[in-house]
Design a protein around this nucleic acid. Structure first.
Lengths: 131, 131
DNA sequence: CGGTAATATCGGAAAATATCGAAATATATA
DNA sequence: TATATATTTCGATATTTTCCGATATTACCG
């Protein structure tokens, strides 16, 4: 529960953005690490990182570090009525359900493989051979 | 219930703003006309009008016209989980409760008086007498 | 240590939004 | 019709946000 209007507005702002809401709704189905999110949603890793920063600031996430991986998940949402209502709606959306299916697939692959795939995707462009 | 992510984000955006959220929370306590809102919150009437426009677009308001006055109120909120959660939080905030008290006071005055007061407040500045 | 892998932060140009006075639109009433 | 009144829309500026490649940071490994 927010304690003032300013805080509540900040929380709302945190989810008033397609990627951030998508990430939140995705995580509501279970924890993922940053590169898994980037791969699932097919967006640059830095964008995911920034999205997570905002969601964290709003108090919507908890984290668990495992080596260099950061696993993120949604806080117990009953403590935040706003989250409960929001995720109830989001969880019913096709796009969100599809993201979750995609996440399942991503999870079937070993994390280091997923991560390196995300790194590769960030490369400028593989300038067709120099031979 | 929003039917896609884009729509849901638009709804969230509509309330990711101090004035808009304040107005929504205020109206949750009962209908008011535009000038009553402006007077209660002590903000320019055009700002209230713009705030209402966004809230309307999001589907959060219903209107009732009475002469030149427009009375606005919040839609039945159980149909929108997001609203339910949000207003549950907002309704507990001091600032919102105080706004509602102020609205009660404003409602004790006849509407035309309130409206003209709001109009006056918009004047540039009453350049101290010409006698 | 040096190297590599995962994540975070920065830079900064483009796009979006906020703000509020002024002008335009209704809607009354005389 | 003319005038006043309540609300909406416009205009123009200021501020904030978005986006993502490049770079920094952190953590592990040999």
């Amino acid at each position: 529960m927010a304690e003032d209007l300013r805080t509540l507005v900040e929380q709302v702002k945190a989810v008033s953005h397609p990627l951030r809401l998508r990430v939140l709704a995705l995580l509501d189905a279970g924890e993922l690490c940053v590169c898994q999110i980037a791969e699932t949603l097919q967006v640059p890793q830095s964008s995911v990182s920034e999205a997570l920063k905002e969601l964290r600031r709003a108090g919507f996430l908890t984290e668990r570090k495992e080596g260099r991986w950061v696993f993120v998940s949604v806080v117990k949402k009953n403590s935040i009525p706003l989250l409960k209502g929001l995720l109830a709606e989001a969880g019913a959306l096709d796009e969100v359900l599809q993201d979750r299916l995609r996440a399942k697939e991503v999870q079937a692959t070993a994390i280091p493989v997923v991560c390196s795939r995300v790194q590769k995707a960030a490369q400028p462009a593989p300038v067709a051979a120099d031979a």
